[in-house]
Amino acid sequence: MIVTDRLTKTYWTHLRRKVVLSNVSVTLDPRVSYGLLGQNGAGKSTFLKLIAGTEAPTSGRIYRSVRLSWPLGFAGGFHPQMTGRENIRFLARVYDADIAEVTDFVEDFSELGRDLDMPVKTYSSGMTSRLAFAVSMAIEFDFYLVDEITAVGDSRFQLKCAQAFAERRARAGMIMASHSTGTIKDYCTAGMVLQKGRLMIFEDVNDAIEVHRQAMEA
């Protein structure tokens, strides 16, 4: 269960206070896949970071009883000077996973081959996201946070990701933030819409898409 209690996040930009989330109190079921919709800059990524705990809320609390992934999608966390393999080992240690198992899985899944022994700073962005996605699939999380994942690799690799993801989703829930209502519809059963600091939850993803569409047209 993930519960947010009067969660508020504000930023100061150019001496103006920007409210990203205002008193959001929701309860998320870790077995459900939520699609998170919202306009550009509505705070979707911020919401994911707050849920993950990598960013602190301005006020309010978050209670978590499940193991959460880092927000997947872009690899902000890899250490550029460490090789891919060393980064994998670091994450396996942090999340108490079997280092050999995780390394084997990532070697197989990411198709990075000998590049895995090169520093991550030499990787292309595609290679980095393949590595990030592979590691997050190798370590079992109860709940995945996904931020615009759809752009990983070529179409063949995307298919592989989708399959791996489908397998994980049988046991784990997720929040997927995306602009693409099509992707959200494919992956999620429930929906959330973030608008002007308010978060609305819908049991049926189609309702969320409808509300989001109306907001975009307005």
């Binding site: 269960m1 519960v3 993950a52 705990g53 602190a56 609390r61 209670y63 978590r64 009883s65 499940v66 193991r67 959460l68």
Partner: peptide, 14 residues
């Protein structure tokens, strides 16, 4: 919510 109500900042349960 047995463990869930504990205000841990991180992904740990307890």
């Amino acid at each position: 919510m047995t463990n869930a109500s504990r205000p841990t900042r991180f992904a740990g349960e307890s």
